[in-house]
Design a protein around this nucleic acid. Structure first.
Lengths: 249, 249
DNA sequence: CGCATCCTTGACCGCGGTCAACAGTCGTGG
DNA sequence: CCACGACTGTTGACCGCGGTCAAGGATGCG
């Protein structure tokens, strides 16, 4: 990873670190802000912060002060279960927002950990709120983010409650594919930044089952996988698996 | 149910229909508003609306205009799955907010259906937003509602991903108990307004399994159940089932 | 009273969890 | 450079939880 340390900031200085120069801008939180509003939004951002693989961005129980937006890399959101077991509840890709489950709360209910070397933009929530008073579009964007996450959780609920392992796996892969595609990358090939155990934890499957399913999908020509390098070969077939399979009640 | 129809309104007229006269006020959305602010909040509420068992409060795909607060009765939130199957994602009790998953969206992503004769207060979202500009406490309350729902969904994710049927059932019953207790009712005895099939759909279990588990819990002296009348006899034992059971990975 | 809906209980068996052994891959130090 | 251990991923064998099917009982409404 190439990051130079200029002063105490960790990104190349100049325009590049601003929203206008960021390739994710059109998919990011400030979506739909007018140019001069964007500049005001830009002004409240604390400049990108680097995290290494395994480093926590926020820790469960820490006081809530800021939202973060993933600028590059990826993260997993984990909760320490009552049974002291860790459980992955979400994966976060570039342009996605971290900390919405803590908005309006005193502390973070989950931890968020880098899966690889990553950068995040920090948005102090106080500043964001103040700016939201003047820019209804920004507040609307925040609402939309939160409700979309609620909606996404509902679909996940359906998946975990009723889908077979095969269907969960197919849905997961298609979801990753979509999210990559939405950011301008290929929907067919991508790197899985997370381990089989993380995927299993997220989908409610044993890691062995994750591994077996990937092998089976490969054997059937649906995809090509080697370690964490994933290539989806037959999206329609995967969609058929993800949507049809009227298995469990 | 005792409700007189006075004119076209379906609640006793006068103070009773205002927040100040509502027994749920201290648990409800306007929690923590000062007296005169509460009056302004009260002014934007569309007076309680009655729904019969099975009647939809909002339908999936309908345009979003208002939030609702359950005043009495109960509801289930359902999504029409990709596989054309209906799936229960939440149950809603008095003082809980309906429609947060649609805030900032054009349409409702889920339907909400009355499980029994119920009343709701309607909060037009536009008015709520406008009032929120002047009452930071109100906006904060809205944020808190949304993030709490996100947090709740995370715990549900853990439950569905890893818990055995027994543990899901125990958690569900304890959750209902807590929510009843939070509203000043007994944590031990309550009516289940939903069918076994609804519970199963929510927990990702076959309705037969729900029935079997209730029978087993009763056999072991943990509770007393007769149809939809539920009495929890041994909360500590249920908590042990809900929290310990380190079953699946 | 009769039909519909909801609930209960039993019998069976398949999906996927668990345990176990082994194969790659990477980073570290001799 | 290779040897070593730690970690991650793959594959097989086994079996138990819980889904499915089926039958019968309870409850309620027209």
């Amino acid at each position: 990873m190439t990051h130079h340390l200029t002063g105490h900031s960790a990104m190349p200085s100049g325009q590049v670190s601003h929203c206008q120069g960021c390739s994710l801008c059109s998919h990011c939180l400030p979506l739909g802000l007018a140019y001069e509003d964007l500049e005001r939004f830009d002004a409240i951002i604390l400049r990108p912060r680097p995290l290494k693989r395994g480093a926590p961005l926020v820790r469960q129980g820490e006081p809530f002060t800021s939202l973060y937006v993933v600028r590059s890399g990826s993260f997993k959101q984990v909760v320490a279960d009552a049974g002291h077991r860790e459980h992955v509840t979400h994966f976060l890709l570039p342009s996605e927002v971290v900390g919405l489950d803590a908005v309006g709360e005193a502390v973070h209910p989950t931890s968020v950990v880098a899966l690889e070397s990553s950068f995040v933009c920090e948005l102090p929530f106080g500043s964001l709120e103040a700016l939201g008073d003047r820019l209804p579009a920004l507040r609307g964007a925040l609402y939309r983010c939160m409700s979309q996450e609620l909606h996404r959780d509902q679909r996940l609920h359906c998946l975990l409650a009723f889908a077979t392992a095969e269907r969960r796996m197919a849905s997961f892969l298609l979801g990753m594919s979509e999210r990559h595609a939405a950011r301008g990358y290929s929907p067919y090939g991508f790197q899985l930044a997370m381990s089989r155990a993380d995927i299993g934890s997220f989908l409610g499957l044993a890691l062995e089952t994750v591994s077996r399913l990937m092998s089976r999908f490969q054997r059937h020509g649906l995809l090509q996988v080697s370690g964490r390098e994933m290539t989806l070969l037959d999206l329609p077939a995967l969609e058929a698996l993800a949507e049809q399979g009227e298995s469990r009640r």
